[in-house]
Design a protein around this nucleic acid. Structure first.
Lengths: 225, 225
DNA sequence: ATTTTGTGTAAACATAAGGTTAACATGGAA
DNA sequence: TTCCATGTTAACCTTATGTTTACACAAAAT
């Protein structure tokens, strides 16, 4: 399966910087979006639900720190990676930035290549399991071969079914909200009916024959042994 | 509950640096160990199995890069956090360091405070999921997995029941007024009858089998061990 | 080019879990 | 005792999810 591209939102008021970062990250295979001030960053973040947000600290409307605080106070953005970008290279700003809940802090002048390396390093750490075979109980899921086995007996799943199962199994026990599932598997722009997820869940349950997908009514689904 | 201390191994050939970093990280609550060259770093890593290894790049016996590569080739150290420390501040070294599989790269001269912030940021990211779990006595509440356990035995709660318990347990000992509970769990716009809360409380008490929800007559409810 | 097959989505309906209510019980304080 | 807040129970209603069927569409096979 083609790994879904990671979404990155960059917020900076200098168009030049936006452009050069955008260029370099896009070249690296990321899906890049931009915002030119704090408010726009917040608005776009809510709609895009990016995997990483790069925030300039000195921005009009709202500073990067303010944006970061607002994002971190919402449960949807608890796990979103955040990198601060800034001209302030003094020690205290950096410490303050990291303590606000950012994952990295890069000082200007920015080397695009270094920034890309740091972005890669963050994603490598978080999504380390991707591409690896997931084994839980007697179920094993190989995202490379696009195959699922139960007790070493192969089961064939369709693409969407596989993606859905793979998502749920990537964090066993964790509940995925219907919304999360939609954005992760279907993407942000696609709109599908209410029953679509259920239908796929049903098909997976049917094909696997093992009861490992648990419904948490009113919340979502989770994978359990 | 106290989290077990995180173990950090620092490798550098300059005793001064070892000492100052050791001092600052220990003060922050980490369990710190040191090594004075590449080989010693490898040996101690195998015995200590630290959560984080801070490696100077220019070291006798083996460079930090070599040590990193050797560690990453062993399955035991796939997940270990690694930070490079170096006097080389040029772009290419940094990129190379990050691509070797390190999680961060800090240039000398090192500000101990900044290093501590970065260490904290890494741990915060990796261990955040565990931080969300509330543990009081033998009851643990995991909002991510949407699960409640008593003495490690899972208990299944319905959505409203879970939300109610989670609210009360979020501030153990504190009394929540009925009004507070209504607005927090049901929202401001919903209007429900008098007995609704009681019924849910009852169900929780029944399912948990442990007496941890105390009634404060005329006031509200609280969670107590 | 045409047929076949498999996949993804929508729509309609069924079902059961969850949530609420109402009626009554209990128990302590004035 | 009497009152009032909460406990208890079971019936009831609501709603999220399960299930099935049908259809559109694209890829593969003919």
């Amino acid at each position: 399966m083609e790994a879904p591209k990671k979404r990155i939102l960059i917020a900076d008021d200098e168009p030049d910087i936006l452009e050069i970062i955008n260029y370099n990250l896009t070249k690296e295979g990321y899906e890049v979006y931009t915002a030119k001030d704090g408010n726009e960053a917040l608005d776009r973040a809510k709609i895009l639900n990016p995997d990483l947000i790069i925030l300039d600290i000195m921005m009009p409307k709202k500073t990067g720190i303010e944006v970061c605080n607002l994002l971190r106070s919402q449960s949807l953005f608890q796990e979103t990676l955040i990198i601060f970008l800034t001209a302030l290279s003094d020690e205290n700003s950096q410490i303050k930035g990291l303590e606000t809940g950012a994952d990295d802090y890069v000082s200007k002048p920015i080397s695009p290549k270094v920034l890309v390396s740091r972005v890669n390093a963050l994603f490598r750490r978080i999504y380390k399991e991707e591409g690896k075979t997931i084994k839980i109980g007697n179920v094993s899921i190989d995202p490379v071969k696009f195959m699922v086995s139960i007790d070493d007996k192969g089961v064939v799943l369709a693409k969407k079914e596989f993606e859905l199962l793979h998502l749920l199994a990537s964090k066993p026990g964790r509940v995925f909200l219907r919304n999360e599932i939609l954005t992760q598997v279907w993407g942000t722009d696609v709109i599908v009916g209410d029953r679509t997820i259920d239908v796929h869940i049903r098909k997976i349950r049917q094909k696997l024959g093992v009861d490992c997908l648990t419904t948490v009514k009113g919340v979502g689904y989770k994978f359990e042994a």
